[in-house]
Nucleic acid binder design. Structure first.
Lengths: 118, 118
DNA sequence: ATTATAGTTGAATATATGTTCAACTGTCAA
DNA sequence: TTGACAGTTGAACATATATTCAACTATAAT
């Protein structure tokens, strides 16, 4: 008796280890935020956009031509990038010019490139 | 005449910019590999596993208890992590002990934590 | 040998998500 | 004011993927 309810289909094997990890591990909230951030980076269209903006600020049409996609598809992904504050944009007349939000974005691109080229 | 075929629904607005970016941008191949890598990090279950292994090596049962999930679900995600070489494992008797593959994994976790806590 | 437990796996299901389509807004030029 | 183009948006559709389920292997203990 006294055994905790569990939704998994087994029992802990190394309880001491488990307690240690429970104390040390990054909080659920932070983990969820990290997950949301990397979900954004985990799509090839959005990565393509970010890599392009890493070279130069661009408008939606130019991005669409570069990537052989419709403006709509690009715009939808730009919205995701905006909502996650990975890009900035400024309107000038008919155009919206997009650029990377900050150096963290560049860092996140670069660290992955390092990793895959090891 | 002479105009290139295009699958987008518009024309390039800044051709000079476009040419510049086409030369400077990270290759499609590398971009795809980066995307695949971050796709793995973009799932909360896998992140949870990685964060736990960042504290201590663990077996599947302990991970399942920690995360309140079935062994099966954990094992499926460990397979993804293995295939992407983000974790190592060693068998000892009945148990499989998993740990982080290398410091890059730690770096990728940490850089995201920095970003969200700015 | 038999039983129990750790772990893996393939198929099915359920859900999340990227692209398309059509309609719309806002700006510039004629 | 009208037409053309840049850009956005919501809904529908198509695809990708995480979890469940059931069956299976392998090891250790009785």
């Amino acid at each position: 008796m006294g055994k905790k309810e569990m939704m998994c289909d087994c029992c802990a094997v190394h309880e001491d280890c488990l307690e240690h990890v429970k104390k040390e591990i990054v909080s659920d909230v932070d983990l969820a935020r990290v997950g949301d951030l990397y979900k954004v980076f985990g799509d090839s269209t959005r990565l393509h956009i970010l890599a392009a903006l890493n070279c130069h600020e661009m408008c939606v049409c130019d991005l669409a031509v570069l990537m052989n996609m419709t403006k709509s598809a690009v715009s939808h992904q730009l919205k995701v990038l905006r909502e996650n504050k990975l890009v900035r944009f400024s309107k000038e007349g008919k155009h919206s010019y997009y650029s990377l939000a900050d150096d963290h974005v560049r860092d996140i691109l670069n660290i992955a490139l390092e990793h895959i080229n090891e």
